[in-house]
Write a protein that binds this DNA or RNA. Structure first.
Lengths: 219, 219
DNA sequence: AAATGTTTTAAACAACTGTTTAAATTTAGT
DNA sequence: ACTAAATTTAAACAGTTGTTTAAAACATTT
C-alpha cells in the first residue's frame, strides 16, 4: 500500500530490477498465452519473485496487463507514425523506409502483431478513449503526399484504405501467420527469415506497381 | 458414462438438438474468447442447458475445444483446396475464383481466421500429426500451373511462398485486422463491407500484376 | 405397466486463481 | 547503531473453475 501513485525520485536499484523483471516476464507470457491463459503464479515463478509482489508493484493482474498492452500498442504505432510523418522524404522513399524498418522490427518481435490484434479485438473501446493517436492517421504527411499524387493524376485513384491494407497485409500477415505458413509450406525458420529479407525489396516494388501500373489483361 | 465412444444409430431428436446447440454456442464463445477465456458456465448458460451436459456429451472442455478447432480448420482448408485444385480452370481463373469465394466466406465468418491463427500458434504440433492435408499443398494443381508458367518464362521467378503470402495477406489480413482498421481509419461497418467487395476485383488485378509486370522505377 | 436405457438436473467436490494479510527482512536516513 | 520506510515472504482467504455424482425426469421397449 505504498507507491501505486508514485513516480518518485531516487528509486533504489533492487526495486527497479524487480519491477522491471516482473513486467518483462509478464509481457512475454501475456503475449504467448493471452490475459486469461497467463496465470499469476506462472509469471511469479518465471520471474523468480514472490507471488505477492505482482500485486505490490502493479496492484492487479488486470492493471499489469493493461499497462503492457497500452505500452506495446503505443510503441508500435509511434514507430509507424514516425516514418510515415517524415516531412523531407518522398512518398517512394517513405515506402522503402517503412517496409524495411517494419520488417526488421517484426523479425525481432514476431509475436507483437497477433498480440495487438487480439487486444484491439477484445478491448477496442478502451483504446478509442485513451489514444488520440488513432484519429490523426489521415493527418499523416504520408497520406497528404498520397492524395496530392492522386489529385495530379500520377497515381491511381483508389481508397487509401486499400493501400494501407495491402501495405500492412503484405508486411504483417507473414509474421502473424508464420506458424501456419511454416506448417503448410514446410519452410524452416532459417529460410523463413531469408524470405522476409527478400520482401524488404519485393514489397515496395509490388506496392509501387499498385500505385502506377495499368493492368495488362493476360490470360 | 454412456456414449463417448459411439456413433451409434437412431439418435432421438432431442439429443441431437442439445448436442448441436452446445457445439454451436461453444464454437461462438471459443472463437470470441479463446480456450481459457471461455468458461463452461457461460457456454451452458448461453446454450440454455445444464452445466453437466457439456461433460456428458463431450467428456471435457478440452475435448470439445479440440473438436471445434479441428473441424474449423478442416472446413476452412477444404474450401481453399477445392478451388485451388480444380483441374479445368486456368491459373487466372483460379485466382479470380479463389479471391471471390474467399472474401465472400470471410464476410460471413470474419472471426474464423484469427481463431485459426491463434490455434495453430499454440497447438501447431497437434495439427502436423492429424492432417496429411498440409503436406499436399505443393501438389495442388494451382502450384503446378504456377511453376509451369515460371518454367515457360511467362511469369516472374519468385518463390511461390511469396505469392501465397501476398494472396492470403491481401485477402485475410483486412478481416483479421478489421477492429484495428476500423479504429484507425474511422471506417464504419457498412463501408468496410463495401471495400471488401471492391477487393474482389482489385486483389486479383494486383496479384496478376505481381506475376507479369516489370517494375517501372518512378520517383 | 414394468423395466430398461437415456437424458437432464441440482448439488457438491477438489483444484486452481487472483488477491490480501501480517510478519519478517532488507534498505536508507540520521 | 537506531529508526522508519520499503521490500519480500509464507500463509491464508474467498471466489471461480472444470468436473463428478447420484438422483430425478424422460423416453423406449417389452
Amino acid at each position: 500500500m505504498f507507491k501505486f501513485d508514485s513516480n518518485y525520485i531516487g528509486m533504489p536499484d533492487k526495486e527497479l530490477q524487480t519491477e522491471e523483471k516482473i513486467k518483462e516476464v509478464a509481457r512475454k507470457i501475456f503475449q504467448e498465452k493471452g490475459f486469461e491463459g497467463a496465470k499469476t503464479r506462472d509469471i511469479a515463478k518465471e520471474a523468480g519473485i514472490n507471488l505477492a509482489l505482482m500485486n505490490y508493484y502493479f496492484r492487479s493482474k488486470k492493471a499489469l496487463f493493461e499497462m503492457i498492452m497500452m505500452e506495446t500498442v503505443q510503441d508500435f504505432f509511434q514507430m509507424v507514425f514516425q516514418i510515415l510523418n517524415k516531412p523531407d522524404t518522398s512518398l517512394m522513399d517513405k515506402i522503402d523506409g517503412f517496409v524495411n524498418t517494419y520488417i526488421e522490427t517484426l523479425k525481432k518481435n514476431p509475436e507483437v502483431p497477433l498480440f495487438i490484434l487480439s487486444c484491439v479485438k477484445s478491448n477496442g473501446a478502451e483504446f478509442q478513449k485513451k489514444f488520440s493517436m488513432f484519429h490523426m492517421i489521415s493527418e499523416l504527411h504520408f497520406f497528404k503526399q498520397f492524395q496530392e499524387l492522386v489529385k495530379q493524376g500520377k497515381v491511381k485513384n483508389i481508397h487509401p484504405a486499400h493501400f494501407l491494407m495491402n501495405l500492412a497485409g503484405m508486411i504483417v500477415f507473414p509474421f502473424v501467420a508464420s506458424p501456419m505458413i511454416k506448417l503448410v509450406t514446410q519452410i524452416p525458420e532459417s529460410e523463413f527469415d531469408l524470405l522476409m529479407d527478400q520482401r524488404k525489396k519485393l514489397v515496395p516494388m509490388w506496392l509501387k506497381d499498385m500505385l502506377f501500373e495499368t493492368t495488362l489483361e493476360k490470360n
